[in-house]
Simulated assay, not measured.
Amino acid sequence: MRWRADDFSLRYNLLFPAYAQLPPRLGYALAGQHAGLFRRKRAEEEAVIRTQMQGAFPAATEVQLAGWLNDYYRMVEQEALDTWYLQHQPIQNLVDLQGFEAVAQARRQGKRVLLTGGHFGRFWMAGAAMRAQGFTTGTITRDGGTTNQHGLHPAEYRYRLFKLQRLQQALGGAFLVEGDELRPLYRALNDHLIALIFDVPYIEAHKGRVTVNFISGTIDLPAGIYRIAKKTKAVIAPFFMRDWGEGRVVAEFSALLDPNDYNEATLMGLLAQQLEQRIRESPGHWWLWPALPLLRSK
């Protein structure tokens, strides 16, 4: 097959498809090793991440910062490789679930459940593991439109569509495009778990934000997940990923939250507190370091 220069990607066209034919331990190790090669092309982004990490943790040493940045870019490459391993490996070889029984019990009782987290770790892998236990998951996504409205490189745009297709196959739930009306979301909650990562600006977010404490300061978060949960009589299930190394991860579920027990500021503050705890344990596994200035309260 021949590719146009602007449509070719060494990672997406050659490396990841090849790695996915290997045992996961080896494939993910190779993805982690080549992270440094592609990281050099993102020097400006790395500088921003380093600045944000240093501002959040002013006592961090250069050795710690270097380790966190290595973790971050290794995660980026391994998360991309997940897209291929979803098809080639039994998911139980890659993902474990801890604390998921509360979610399963809620669904068996007919309750609607919203999954949430804070863009921490390789979080999509949790959905594939839940599917293996008989629970389909849907979400609202920025991708999936018919045009490249975010101006991505052609190879990156093509990969995003491919990833979205693979995730839909693996997770089995309704994937709704951000900006569309939310009625289908309410209906989908009857049949699927729905993931709303709380810092994604879905439509409801524009109706109000709340300011919460977060790592040496505050951030403004959209309270849409609280409002949707309350309106649809759903409970909220926070979960966060822990990296066990060699490509394996575990999805750790916190206690279910009933929005009727909180106001929106308190609930969003609790979610931010749980996220901060995970970030302090593994700073390099949070995706949104480059976006932290946008989240900080004005």
Score class of each variant (00 low, 15 high):
G110H: 05
P293A: 15
A66E: 13
M268W: 03
L114W: 03
L171Q: 06
Y73T: 02
A31N: 09
N190F: 10
G67A: 13
L22Y: 07
N263P: 06
H206Q: 12
F239V: 01
E44A: 10
R40A: 15
S282R: 12
P222L: 06
I140W: 04
P283C: 13
A5W: 14
E44S: 14
S297M: 13
H150I: 13
L86P: 01
P259H: 02
L115D: 00
L196N: 02
N263G: 12
L37R: 12
R142E: 07
E264G: 08
I219L: 09
L182A: 01
W3G: 09
N260L: 07
A251N: 01
H153Y: 11
G173R: 03
G99W: 00
I203E: 08
A43V: 03
F8M: 07
D71S: 09
R166N: 11
W68R: 02
R280K: 15
Y226T: 02
A195I: 07
A80D: 08
L176H: 02
L86Q: 02
W68S: 06
E156K: 15
R209W: 13
A59Y: 14
Q54P: 05
T266V: 11
A251K: 03
G172Y: 04
L81R: 02
Q169A: 15
A265G: 06
V76I: 14
V113D: 00
Y186V: 09
R160M: 11
S216L: 11
F214P: 00
F120N: 01
Q33E: 10
V48K: 03
A31Y: 01
D6Y: 13
K231I: 14
T218M: 09
Q52R: 03
E79K: 08
R248I: 07
Q54C: 05
H119W: 05
T266R: 14
L295G: 02
G151H: 05
V48Q: 07
Y157L: 10
E45T: 07
G269C: 04
M241Q: 05
A18D: 08
E276C: 11
I236K: 00
Y72K: 01
Q109V: 09
S297L: 15
L294A: 14
A195N: 08
L189D: 00
K163T: 15
A126M: 08
Y202L: 06
T139H: 06
L275V: 03
E276Q: 15
